[in-house]
Design a protein around this nucleic acid. Structure first.
Length: 783
DNA sequence: GCTCGTTGCTTACCT
DNA sequence: ACAGGTAAGCAACGAGCG
């Protein structure tokens, strides 16, 4: 490579970043799209890897500094050591900043320093260089950034311009999104026996679809090397910025990677012609492009119980959903065996790619907004668990205020008391209002300055008038200065409010509306996760007392509100954590709301109004009729993914007849009709299938349950099942325990079904859960 | 060896 | 791999039983 044309100002929409070595130095490579729509890559080694060391207070930093610089044997690869002022848990402190020549020596010096000075603590040496850059410079992924650059020629750079940053990049406020090229793909594999194995089973087809309309279905003729080759050609030719698919991180990419290895093919799909690799949070990383698995987006739609592309597409009413069918892997080999089946599979492959593309278009704004908010690159943000999204957000905020970023040392864990749930008043209630505290925990955390850096340890003395003492648990927090959580939550809450205000004035059809809406959602997600994050042992800023205090304040809040409601003569029907269900006497409700706002200083709203609502004796399970005549069903079998459809349907019918039509008779009739259908064998297998998730590796189970036994059987037959997979089974006739009667749904014939089980253990319990509240006995369901 | 009540594993839900 | 609180089904266990 050679230095080129001199300085230019580059403004770029940041899509991806990664660490590389360049000119012998650790360096970050930013990938993005510039204002003219050119794809660009910017190299920067303006920040070298570094971390901090906080020694004991009495230690003389200058002496230690000298020792570290001179002792090359114990401290290799250190470029410079300086003394800086930072904050640790809100207290100003002097620390050593240790800058390293390479990333790999970073974690070693802390231990050496501890040996040298006896005590002390290392900070920030676990942050990878791209994270370092993003936080130090507050760069925005899925947002615009700019810097002075020097154009360079980079060997093998095709389709993009390469630069070296000569000034530090910085974020630019600009909500526009450039036109991005999205590629959706689907890989068709067929197993000879059981799941397809990359060592022996070729890729049968790869279907591709793009936002520009260009599409292809690459079908394997003799061997699949040609398909792999054409796939790479297609990717390079189209040069996508974003690659999407469904379950690509766990299926397609893994198969492509392993298959390529098996046939010794270089899967050079990266912008730098590198191969994809599995990276943090278990996602697959493709250099220069954002690889997004839409399955992770679908995980955020709880209404869809079985997360297949087909179900998600149907739920979102995508165009491609109309003709879509899911061909499960056990159906594929017989289909592939003959010409018409083959055609169907290939046709469906191209529809899958098409559906993924539509799904991406429909849902991508949220991931992009969450990426911009948290600072995690687009390909990581949806793969990362909630805790890591908050972690990323806090790292950036902490850096901004000069607070040292602690490591993630897993600490011993203690649980604590949580929220209050009230025993419901059972039966039917007309005209009920549901009152809800707005963002209760975040608000309480902000109000009482609950934070790791304001928490006063037991025994520590402080002036009494500058302390919040939390009821019941007696934890103490400084009223001043603002803690990290307060600072962060105040920003999040404030920003969310201002977006809400903007949304009120905007037309839902305007271009910016959806972006704002999704940004608002991203803010809400992060705001609401802060409480749980504080109580999570894996959190960098985990302090159990913070979460415990928020919960205690929540209990106090709801208890006081209940007392007030009762004194106003409002009948309380139910309540959970931050909600109260009361008889909708509007004048009294208004009085209560005003009281909460005036006396407690918290916002409370009428969240919903039920024309009618019913409770069983159980908490967290009820059903209500909304003003628009729709049913709101909570916690009951209808909304549970681990009951058969037949049971869920009959319960929903019963609830409809009772709440909407107010006819107990019709409800009973509906159940009888279902029972007759079941007894006649007229209920399709699909409605009898029960699905449960494998939540741990199969060998970790200590109890034999239907879904685990079925999973074991399938695995023995050569099917691949992993944690997170749903196991579909049907209970069949025969002797023994339930787990012995459960068979994989794909292997059950209609005549094998144990109708008695479905009658006694699915349909009747689901129906009776509701009906027994109204005096119906099981005998009355006899047909 | 069987029945019956209790315990605990397991999943999925609610806020 | 954000928290705790809850329901519910079923397997496993142990006591009682001539």
């Amino acid at each position: 490579m050679s230095k080129g044309d001199g300085l230019v100002r580059s403004r770029f929409y940041l899509l991806d970043d990664n660490e590389v070595e360049w000119e012998g130095k650790p360096c970050v490579r930013f990938w993005g799209v510039d204002e003219k729509g050119a794809r660009i890559c910017i190299l920067s080694n303006l920040i070298m890897p570094y971390g901090y060391f906080l020694p004991n207070q009495q230690d003389d930093l200058e002496t230690i500094r000298q020792k570290v610089i001179e002792d090359k044997k114990h401290f290799p690869g250190i470029i410079s050591v300086s003394i800086e002022t930072k904050k640790h848990l809100g207290q100003e402190c002097k620390v050593l900043k240790i800058t390293c020549a390479t990333s790999d020596v970073r974690s070693g010096y802390s231990k050496e320093l501890q040996k040298l000075v006896g005590k002390g603590e290392g900070f920030e040496n676990d942050l990878r260089l791209p994270v370092r850059y993003m936080a130090d410079l507050m760069l925005t992924p899925c947002g615009w950034n700019e810097c002075e650059t020097d154009k360079i020629k980079l060997d093998g750079a095709e389709g993009y311009d390469a630069y070296v940053a000569s000034t530090a990049p910085k974020s630019v406020a600009d909500d526009t999104v450039p036109t991005l090229r999205i590629l959706a793909f689907y890989t068709l594999t067929v197993g000879e026996k059981g799941s397809a194995k990359p060592e022996s089973d070729p890729i049968r087809a790869i279907a591709l679809a793009t936002t520009s309309g260009k599409s292809a279905t690459l079908v394997s003729e003799k061997d699949d090397v040609k398909v792999l080759k054409d796939f790479v050609e297609f990717v390079k030719g189209y040069d996508p910025d974003i690659i999407v698919g469904f379950q690509t991180n766990t299926q397609d990419w893994l198969y492509l990677i392993q298959r390529s290895k098996a046939v010794k093919f270089k899967l050079a799909v990266g912008r730098d012609s590198s191969e994809p690799h599995t990276s943090v949070y278990g996602h697959v990383s493709v250099a220069g492009r954002a690889n997004l698995d839409l399955f992770d987006v679908a995980s955020g739609i709880p209404e869809v119980k079985v997360k297949t592309l087909e179900n998600v597409a149907k739920y979102l009413q995508l165009d491609s959903a109309v003709k879509f069918t899911t061909f499960e892997e056990w159906d594929r080999s017989s289909l592939w065996a003959e010409e018409s089946g083959r055609r169907k599979l290939i046709e469906n492959a191209s529809m899958s790619a098409q559906a993924s593309l539509e799904l991406a278009r429909e849902t991508m704004i949220f991931p992009m907004q969450l990426s911009a908010l948290t600072g995690l690159p687009l390909d990581q943000v949806m793969a990362a668990a909630t805790g890591f999204r908050v972690d990323s957000y806090l790292i950036r905020k902490a850096h901004q205020i000069g607070e040292l970023i602690p490591g993630r040392n897993e600490q011993p864990y203690f649980t604590y008391r949580g929220a209050i749930v009230l025993e419901p008043k059972t039966g039917l209630h007309d005209d009920v209002a549901v009152l809800d505290f707005a963002s209760m925990y975040p608000t309480l955390m902000e109000k009482y300055n609950l934070s790791p850096d304001t928490f006063i340890k037991p025994g520590e003395s402080v002036p009494e008038d500058s302390v919040f003492i939390i009821p019941e648990v007696n934890h103490r927090f400084k009223t001043k200065p603002d803690g990290l959580y307060k600072t962060v939550l105040a920003t999040l809450i404030h920003e969310r409010l201002s977006i809400k205000a903007l949304l009120k004035g905007a037309s839902p059809k305007s271009t910016g509306y959806k972006v704002l809406k999704e940004r608002e959602r991203a803010l809400k997600v992060i705001t609401n996760a802060c409480y749980g994050y504080a109580g999570w042992a894996g959190a960098r800023w985990h302090v159990r007392e913070v979460a415990e205090s928020a919960a205690a304040l929540g209990r106090e809040t709801i208890t006081k509100t209940i007392t007030k409601a009762e004194s106003l003569g409002l009948s309380i029907i139910y309540g959970d954590t931050d909600s109260l269900f009361v008889k909708n006497e509007r004048a009294k409700v208004k009085q209560l709301l005003d009281w909460v706002e005036d006396e407690l200083g918290l916002e409370i709203r009428v969240e919903r109004e039920y024309r009618r609502v019913m409770f069983t004796e159980a908490m967290k399970r009820y059903a209500g009729l909304l003003p628009d005549d729709s049913l709101d069903i909570v916690g009951l079998e209808v909304v549970r993914g681990d009951w058969s459809d037949i049971a869920r349907q009959v319960q929903e019918e019963v609830l409809g007849k009772i709440l909407r039509d107010q006819s107990l008779e019709e409800a009973v009739e509906a159940v009888k009709a279902t029972i007759r259908k079941l007894q006649k064998g007229k209920v399709p297998l699909a409605d009898l299938t029960i699905r449960k998730t494998l939540t741990k590796p199969i060998e970790k189970y200590v109890v034999r349950t239907p879904h685990v036994e079925v999973a074991k059987r399938l695995m023995k037959e050569g099917w691949t099942l992993t944690v997170g997979d749903k196991v579909a089974y049907v209970i069949t006739k025969g002797p023994g325990k339930l787990f012995q009667k459960a068979k994989p749904s794909s292997q059950v014939k209609p005549e094998d079904v144990d109708r008695e089980y479905y009658l006694e253990n699915q349909v009747k319990p689901a129906a009776m859960r509701i009906l027994e509240r109204f005096g119906v006995s099981e005998g009355q369901l006899e047909t």
